[in-house]
């Protein structure tokens, strides 16, 4: 089984005026390709910070982090942009769709940055919306979608450039439990059928244990507990 993510000793310090805030105190972990990994922990324990570093949106102050053998720590800003474009898809608690764009355009946006042709973008965006069960909602604006639908659009967008890694930061945090269940099911399906590696931050310890291969618990910028629930096939 190949190691897809290899993180060791990641530190993140935020500077606020004179004093610094240590959000991560040497986090080390690894993940297999195709693994569904959940991160739980109290608010402020550094989960989002870790996920943003994994997604190339933020950079670590110290430590090493390899994704698919690429060293994120040495990447320049444009290389990180390329990494975000091609290697990862991210979804968020607040969906982060562009309000003025239709569902279709939101899904097509990452492909625009990847210089895909318009026809190719449209076709693939339609396919992805069908995949997440929103074929009828192509031309709706985010404001016209329910929370669950919006998160599905976000998932479709995250898949646009066929990433191998999906990062989800509390994807069900704004949803009722029924809708949350549907979203988690969709993630599980993607993980199983597409061999997509998923790292999900969640508050929902029960469903995390249900879905994930492994759960990491964070506290004050450290991983304090690791539990395996399912063996990788």
């Amino acid at each position: 089984m190949q190691t897809f993510i290899q993180a060791s000793g990641i530190c993140k310090e935020y500077h606020k005026g004179q004093s610094g805030v240590m959000a991560l105190h040497g986090v080390s972990f690894s993940a297999q390709a195709g693994e569904f990994l959940s991160i739980v922990g109290r608010s402020g324990s550094g989960k989002s910070t870790l996920l943003n570093i994994l997604g190339g949106l933020d950079t670590a102050s110290a430590g090493k982090i390899y994704v698919d053998s690429q060293d994120l720590a040495v990447m320049r800003r444009y290389q990180l942009a390329l990494y975000r474009r091609t290697m990862v898809g991210m979804i968020f608690q607040s969906f982060n769709l562009i309000p003025s764009c239709s569902a279709l355009d939101n899904v097509a946006l990452p492909m625009t940055f990847a210089a895909r042709s318009k026809s190719e973008r449209t076709q693939r965006a339609k396919d992805l919306l069908a995949l997440v069960g929103l074929a009828q909602r192509e031309h709706h604006k985010p404001s016209e979608l329910s929370g669950g639908e919006a998160q599905r659009v976000a998932i479709a967008r995250a898949l646009a450039n066929q990433p191998r890694l999906l990062l989800a930061d509390e994807p069900t945090g704004n949803l009722d439990s029924h809708t949350a269940g549907e979203i988690l099911e969709l993630l599980l399906k993607l993980n199983a059928e597409r061999n997509l590696t998923i790292v999900m931050v969640t508050h929902d310890v029960v469903s995390a244990a249900d879905l994930s291969h492994r759960v990491l618990r964070m506290l004050d910028g450290r991983i304090v507990e690791e539990e395996e629930f399912r063996r990788m096939a």
Partner: peptide, 16 residues
């Protein structure tokens, strides 16, 4: 600003 953040998150480079 948020929109720019989204564009960056989905792979938009500084140049783009």
């Amino acid at each position: 600003t948020r929109e720019i953040g989204i564009m960056k998150a989905v792979g938009g480079s500084e140049g783009q």
